[in-house]
Structure formats: C-alpha cells, structure tokens
Design a protein around this nucleic acid. Structure first.
Lengths: 147, 147
DNA sequence: TTATTAAATAATAATCTTTATAATCAGTTT
DNA sequence: AAACTGATTATAAAGATTATTATTTAATAA
C-alpha cells in the first residue's frame, strides 16, 4: 500500500522529467512513510545515517522540487520552521497548542466556502487550508499547557 | 468607531495588568488602523518617524504581549515572515498566490467542524484558521502568475 | 510630588531557518 | 571519450526572531 504510493509518486517524478537521485528518493520515501509532518531539519537528521555526506541544501532543494510538482505541501504554523506533508489525500490538521502534535483530520472539503469566496472577492480560488488549534488528550490530562 | 476599538483594547491591556507604553500604544493603534496585515518589520518601519529610537525587539516584544492577551493573532503563510492581525471580529483570509494580497473574508464560523474534531481527535478545540488561496482579480487580468 | 519598583526599552549579539553561490559529481547524449 | 545538463556538497550569506544586559520609565503608593 505504502509501496504503491511510492511507486505512483516516482512515476509522477518521471513524468515531470525530474531525475530520481538516491537523496531525492530517500526524502520522498521518508515523507511518505512518516506520519509526523516533519521539518526539513528532521528529515535531514533522519537520513543522516544513510547519507552521511548529504547537505541540508539538498533536503531543501528536493522539498522545493517535490512541492512544485505537487507531491508535497508546505505547512507553516506559528513556530519557527515549516513542516512538510505528502499530499496523498485531501485533509485538514488539528494542532495541539501545548505539545505541538499535529493530527490529520478528514472532513468533506469546504467547496461551498470556496465558491462564496470567489463571488465576494473576485478571486479564482485554487485551494484552501483549515487548521484547528486546541489541547490534545494527553496535555489535557497533564494540565501543563503553555502560556 | 476605530476610536472605540482602541479604547476597548487599552482597557483589556489595563485589566491584564500590562503597562501602556507609548511604543506599545503605537503598535496597537497601527495594527487596529491597518487593513493590510503587516509584518513586524512593516510595523517597525511605519513607526520609525514617531519613534526614531525604537528597537525592532520592542516591536516583537509588544506583538508577543498583545498575542498572549489575545488582542492580536499571528498569521504564517509560506513566505518568510509572520503577519499580524487584530482579532476584532472572527474572519478568514483569502490570499493571492501571485501578488500576496490578503483580503478579509467573513463567513459563518465553522462550529460544527470544531465539534467534530473534538469528538474524533479527543482535543479541546479553542479556535481555528481557514485560508483560501487563489488569484485576485488584478492578477487574473494581468495574467502574470508565479510558478 | 517624589520615591519605589517591577516592567519595558534600546542596543546588540546570538540563534535559527532558509536561500544563494560556486565547485564538483553523475548520468546521459553526441 | 567529450560535452552537456542537472544534482549535490560545502559554504557563505541573508533574513527573521530571540536572548541578553544595562538603562529608562510607567504605575503605584508614601
């Protein structure tokens, strides 16, 4: 199943005329297998063992390429660094303000909101983002919320 | 009207036991009067004339304080710097991928989405963000979209 | 009004993330 | 094999934000 997603993604890369280097393959594979919406630095550290000489720039370059093709989406929250997520299926995110955990949230796409926005603002809307913020179960229990 | 919003905001500051310094007052006033969701640097530059000796750190400190009290919200998009927005009334944002323009978008709050998220993820949801991305009228006309 | 004190500011350094640059390397084509 | 194209590495640079510290100041009460 995950294997199929990887093969599909690689096919997309080939169709786009993008070279499939070992580093690029590894970044893509890691993102597909990861459930944790990693930062560029986390990806870099995770692949350190397999590619001791890999540059951080390579991670950023590949994330940019994967983004441009549409295989990967960049998520920015209040914190310092971007997070990256494979755009396998449309979904939203729930973020814990206390521990930073990010949970996927599946909900029917808000198409009618997009339509209304097009009408009132005169935009062509191509996509949207929705994030819900709160406190996760564990942090509720511990009761050690930030701020 | 805008005067009233400023007075209300200052009352909130007083209630929170936060000092009302000239710089803090100016940052708050600028944010309230601004329709443009400015960055920290834009605020800093805008107040340069009135406060030639003000430090950038002061802008950041005050934005943090105003955020903690709940008067201001931080918005992060793909680009490098955060934008800041007075949380006067609940609304969403429409962002042009071509020129970066940000337009306010009023829509009934998605309370049922929050409820569902609480149920499926076990979170206490406190608020949410929704952003719509696309091409604004001007950029559609010019047809000079990025990427 | 003045004194007091905790908080805020200014100036600066430091950190952290991301991008840019240039040299090298690998795979492909001629 | 030589040349070409794009990717990678190493490193520098840029840009945003945070931390530090000495100084100043707003709020409070004597």
């Amino acid at each position: 199943m995950s294997e199929k997603r990887l093969r599909d993604a690689i096919d997309t890369l080939k169709e786009s005329g993008v070279r499939i280097t070992p580093q690029r393959h590894a970044v893509l594979e890691y993102l597909l297998s990861s459930m944790s919406h990693p930062t560029a630095d986390e990806i870099y550290k995770a692949l350190e063992g397999k590619f001791p000489n890999m540059s951080v720039a390579t991670v950023y370059n590949n994330l940019r390429v994967l983004k441009e093709i549409g295989l990967v989406r960049e998520l920015t929250y209040g914190d310092s660094s971007s997070r990256f997520d494979c755009t396998t299926s449309e979904h939203y995110h729930i973020i814990c303000n206390s521990c930073g955990k990010i949970v996927d949230f599946h909900y029917p796409s808000l198409d009618e909101v997009e339509s209304l926005a097009e009408q009132v603002a005169g935009f062509d809307i191509s996509y949207h983002r929705l994030e819900l913020y709160g406190t996760c179960e564990e942090c509720k229990a511990v009761g050690t919320e930030k701020h």
